[in-house]
Design a protein around this nucleic acid. Structure first.
Length: 273
DNA sequence: GTCCAGGCATGCA
DNA sequence: TGCATGCATGGA
């Protein structure tokens, strides 16, 4: 991997295992939009980014080296050896063919607050509508970043809302979950950074204590927002996949269960039912 | 019209 | 502990 500043962009060459479609539009993050040219625009960490792939280069447009190194480098998990991870996972028969077919999925390091909210919203919902609701939430209560892009609203901002304010965004019965969660985090009763520093089991216990957070939402938040690569979310799609593992998860998943899961999730959505 | 979506809280056994 | 049920919304 080599990194260069070219004009207004940061250009990263020779990145193994990063397919923008598979990574940004695979149900782990809900704020990226694909342009007709295959580029993606989105917001993370309060920053707008346009990213595209050109031959062997990943181009981070309108980004300087400081912001790239401070934020996007970690967001895209660029310092993790996904090739080695995928090679290990391919010891499993199902993943061997799945990774060949869908090589390039990475786990994004999203912010804990956004990930937790997003997956509370995700429950009993489909990806298209999750995106729609989050988009409305950001437009209504996030900071205006220009060109129709908005930051994900802070817990402080959302703590000022009522249940009916959330319902107006189409949150349905999840409105009361978001309302309470926002107030708890804004008020300091829930400390997400502290949870991030715990062991996986302890962090999961903390999240499971939150109103509206069950085992699936907790594991998604842990994997996508708290950097726990062993978290293994099982939703309706993964329940179908689990029939292929009647004796439990294979040993080659150890420590990287979450990455295995994301490939299997993608495979299931394309191949099962 | 019915079924389903990256499920959860609640009540009851 | 495990299981049944209700829950908001919108697309297929």
């Amino acid at each position: 991997m080599t990194i260069k500043k070219i004009n207004n962009s940061v250009v990263v060459s020779d990145v193994e295992c990063l397919d923008l479609d598979l990574t940004l539009d695979c149900g782990q993050a809900f704020r990226w939009e694909r342009g007709e040219d295959g580029s993606y625009c989105g917001v993370a960490g309060g920053r707008f980014l346009k990213i595209r792939k050109e031959n062997n280069n990943i181009i981070f447009e309108n980004t300087d080296m400081e912001v790239f190194n401070a934020f996007w480098r970690h967001y895209f998990d660029l310092d993790r050896d996904y090739k080695a991870i995928c090679d290990k996972l391919k010891e499993d028969e199902l993943l061997s063919s799945t990774i060949d077919e869908y090589y390039g999925i990475r786990i994004l390091n999203q912010e804990p607050w956004e990930a937790l909210c997003s997956f509370v919203i995700s429950q009993q919902n489909n990806i298209k509508r999750i995106k729609l609701i989050i988009s409305r939430l950001c437009k209504a209560y996030g900071d205006d970043l220009g060109n129709g892009y908005y930051s994900f609203p802070s817990p402080q901002r959302l703590s000022q809302l009522s249940v009916s304010d959330f319902e107006a965004l189409g949150l349905g019965y999840r409105a009361k979950y978001l309302e309470k969660l926002s107030k708890e985090v804004a008020g300091g009763n829930i400390d997400l950074q502290k949870i991030k520093a715990l062991s996986l089991d302890d962090a999961r216990k903390e999240l499971l204590g939150i109103y509206g957070v069950g085992i699936k939402v907790a594991n998604c938040a842990l994997l996508f927002g708290f950097e726990f690569y062993s978290a293994f979310p099982v939703d309706v799609w993964m329940k179908r996949v689990m029939e292929y593992y009647p004796n439990g998860l294979p040993e080659c998943f150890n420590g990287i269960e979450g990455i295995a899961q994301q490939y299997l999730f993608h495979w299931a959505r394309n191949n099962l039912k």
